[in-house]
Design a protein around this nucleic acid. Structure first.
Lengths: 194, 194, 194, 194
DNA sequence: GACTAAGCGAGACGGTACGTCTTGTCTTAAT
DNA sequence: ATTAAGACAAGACGTACCGTCTCGCTTAGTC
């Protein structure tokens, strides 16, 4: 029988997410344990197991909570200049992946996504999907304005833009810099314009 | 003091790699344990710890051994038609990533790479690097033949080609098909030609 | 502040005792849990904790309720023949201890008595004490009739009679049979007669 | 597959028994945990689970070790005076049961015996059986010397002697004193002599 | 041909974390 | 105010692996 969410302790929920996020930064994803989260949060282990299916889910919730604490609008700015606008997002993504603080958590989520397809769906729905969709939206606008090819598959177009970034970051083939962001943007754009 | 490789038991080495590969397919990377590999291989745990630094390293060696059992030349064919040749590699990569058997192992290696930068270097040197370099080599030939832009950063060009594939595979945003391979190839090529 | 017994739910009380007795027989004392009793009785755990100090207390109450459902007079028959009368009680005690159904509960109470002296007092007052006193009363009558030695300490006399039974039952040195009951009675009586 | 006793660590074995015995006295049987024993002994929990089937078994071994550290001859003295000799043992048993230090452990063993018949067999074989047999041996000698009735069932005779002691101790009906020991001995003997 | 010095299979060891279970308290809504 | 329901903090359970260690047993070279 599933637990009753209306009786859930908000206090405990918050303590758990805070503890998880802190410990994530202190020891990293692999050495992060449910046991330690519970201890730090002053919470019984069962309270974690009752509400989250896995370590990854707790970390995801904690990450979303810390991100949404400053809930910026996800939709990209539309200055009319596609190139400039994309350059902005790509730089932002590169900055995020290069930031050792955020990057650790994201790597943890990536790990869990490889091991658990269901969890991958969750991350996609709640974290990565919206980001990718925002880029697709901006591309769609440009496409309608005739700035991009009309026969473009937008989801592939997005991948052409961010795929290289993640490839470099995940395979650790080379460091991620702002220059690199611009190089990728320029190159990808060339494929997208009419 | 490091062990003496000349006295190493070839028999044990092989049994370990075989056991690791089999178990990898049977239970997946996460639930693969050194204990189980040793038991299956009929080998003391110490023998594994003596020669490999981590579970990932054993799996990597096992994977390389199974791949190199049929040691195909890594360098791409050069028919003169860049587009056709690239289409071939991209399709091959997509097929590999879509194959549930190979894919499981590769996901395991990706996990370990996220957790251990040193291991990432090993995988890059011995597995992924050569593959990427082979593509870069083919691109270089095309570039020299004037089929690709002269000012291209080839490593970025490679990423533009394979980044989208890995992005889709790792984030599990959509299934990998042959059609998709061709779409990506065509799109990327547009950015690479003069 | 203690709860108000006048507002107590008779319905719940009975359901708890019934559930406890049933579960006692089904899973035994050690694996009997407050949790399970509450669930079976359709009762909140707090309702049990409010009215009973321990698991043992619930079991004791349940046992007393089931025994007193058929409230036989505890006092022994007095046919004038001490030997015959004692033979009867001793046989009855042996039968009770040998009965696997009753015996499980009694073992449970014995366990709790070892762990909790206060609880031991409760069991003695409400269950074992009256039984022992009934025997002592019959012995007193016999003593007054000159059938037993005048200088006898009756409580020790009772122990001489039933001590061996419990000893055998608790230490599990040998099975309890009717023959054994008679042997003990005869032997003990020899010490009690003038 | 059972573990190989020849590779057992004597150091750990001793540390575990010592820790168990100490903790037994400090917190009592019920609150004694395997976890605490392992921690105090500086030992992995598995090392305990590997060699002992239950908490009770560890306590029993610890108790036997502490007793056998001073391995007194179990056989009773035979001065020729049965009454005096029995008085000695009975007093000794009473003293042991009245001693709060020893008594706690023995109560713990009694508890486990009620819950686990197999364990009861172990305790009987290794601890209580020999003690009872020693008394039976002394009675047999007296019987042969014509000091006791020839038709006596010795195991029942032993129970007549010690049953009352355990009865009083387990049921906590009254304190165990030396006077009481003598009263019981005298009374029981009356049933045993010709 | 004995001696020495690895590597080897085996598996016990001290640890850590797992996910589950139960305890006794606390909170909420309904009666 | 008691109740049914059940979330909660706490912490022990018994299991699974970790990486280290200690055994005898092979298996090479070296004297």
């Amino acid at each position: 029988m599933p637990p009753d969410p209306s009786r859930r302790s908000e206090r405990s929920r918050r303590a758990i997410l805070t503890a998880a996020t802190e410990l994530m930064h202190e020891v990293g994803y692999r050495r992060l344990t449910i046991e330690a989260i519970a201890a730090r949060a002053g919470v019984g282990k069962q309270t974690i197991y009752r509400w989250w299916p896995s370590k990854g889910a707790v970390v995801l919730d904690g990450f979303l909570a810390s991100v949404n604490a400053t809930p910026d609008d996800l939709s990209l700015p539309d200055t009319g200049d596609v190139a400039a606008d994309l350059r902005g997002v790509v730089r932002a993504i590169v900055a995020e992946l290069a930031d050792p603080k955020l990057s650790g958590t994201t790597r943890g989520l990536m790990i869990e996504m490889q091991e658990d397809a269901e969890f991958a769906g969750m991350v996609l729905d709640r974290l990565l999907g919206p980001q990718l969709r925002a880029i697709a939206d901006r591309l769609r606008a440009a496409q309608r304005a005739g700035q991009l090819r009309a026969d473009l598959d937008l989801s592939v177009a997005v991948e052409l833009l961010v795929g290289p970034l993640y490839h470099r970051w995940l395979l650790r083939t080379a460091p991620l810099t702002e220059d690199y962001a611009d190089t990728v943007t320029d190159l990808a754009l060339r494929a997208l314009v009419p």
